[in-house]
Write a protein that binds this DNA or RNA. Structure first.
Lengths: 187, 187
DNA sequence: CGCCCCATGTAAGACGTTACATGATTGA
DNA sequence: TCAATCATGTAACGTCTTACATGGGGCG
């Protein structure tokens, strides 16, 4: 009942919240967009959908359309929406930054539809706050290894640092966008 | 005999080429550096080492040190070095860019020690060449989704684009470093 | 009729995660 | 002697990958 949901599971949940779809539709979305990272293979998607259904996060309903083969369309249940929102609004931790940013960006990407623009803004601020100490830490690591590591090792670390700096700049840019958008709405 | 080597396997191979170590040493390296992403759990590292040994990539030798418990130090075999170099010098494909850059950066990080600075430079140029078309492609995707996606979805894609742009800048910077270094040596 | 697209799935195998087990040594 | 650290592993479990299976429908 209370099993963990994989990143693929959350990707599916978020997409289904945007639009009820069949497994085949979802597969096409994955394979045709930048979300290809979440596997476009049926051997991953169909079992993941069944797991979500077993946990009560989504419900599938067979569509009998004239002629064509049966097609099962999945919809997010109220319970699934609660879980999706909970996951999206999780505070951004240090681990979220180091263990690949895919999950965080996925959460952000779904945030506006699933929770609202103020939530998106909150995520961005949380990210900005988490990035500062992380960048300091990486800077220290660089100083540590500078004398001993080969150039290529040092440059590899510098590449990581730059990418986090770019993320920081992006988050500020995104914050400004949302602040403008929200101010416009309230006025 | 000819099984695929996982990313963790290559990480271990590269580290062992830098310095023969025990499983425990490797674990400490993983857990104390930015390479934590490659799992610091014994349940992953020890089986991976055994696989590498089975494939003839590394060889372990038990060190009998006064008093302390037996400690198995692994060394890269000639065959392992051939495989490591082959993997490092693989041309950088479009898939390498989309499926997380961890592998490419790992290859680059090991390149100087395992193959030489000219190889590192070659990798960087290959990366720069692969990045240009990829960035164009992402730009098109952005134009496609701009009218339909919510702000958060669009911003998430922009974040990806920025990170590749930052990677492109880094690769140019790294190329200039290597070019200077190699010119200095040859003169 | 044969072929390709829709749409769903299953089976085998590899890998990683978590948690536990073991045993020896060092230090309080 | 008790705990912590060194050092190596195993077992259970879940998930992903790859490849194959199935079966209807449209089309030339």
């Amino acid at each position: 009942m209370n099993a963990e949901i994989s990143s693929l599971g959350y990707a599916l949940l978020g997409l289904l919240h945007g639009k009820p779809s069949s497994g085949y539709d979802l597969r096409k979305i994955f394979s045709s967009t930048a979300m290809r990272t979440y596997s476009d293979s049926p051997g991953a998607i169909y079992p993941a959908l069944r797991r979500l259904e077993r946990e009560g996060m989504i419900r599938g309903s067979v569509e009998e359309r004239s002629g064509l083969r049966r097609r099962q369309v999945f919809r997010v249940t109220p319970r699934g929406l609660v879980e999706l929102r909970r996951w999206i609004m999780l505070p951004i931790t240090h681990d979220d930054l180091t263990s690949g940013l895919k999950m965080v960006m996925l959460r952000f990407a779904f945030s506006e539809n699933a929770v609202g623009a103020t939530a998106s803004l909150e995520i961005l601020r949380s990210m900005e706050a988490a990035l500062r100490p992380h960048l300091r830490e990486l800077g220290q690591k660089l100083e540590e290894i500078r004398p001993v590591a080969p150039t290529s090792g040092r440059l590899a670390l510098e590449c990581g640092i730059r990418s986090y700096e770019s993320l920081l700049q992006w988050s500020r840019y995104a914050i400004s966008i949302y602040e403008k958008q929200l101010k416009g709405e309230s006025s």
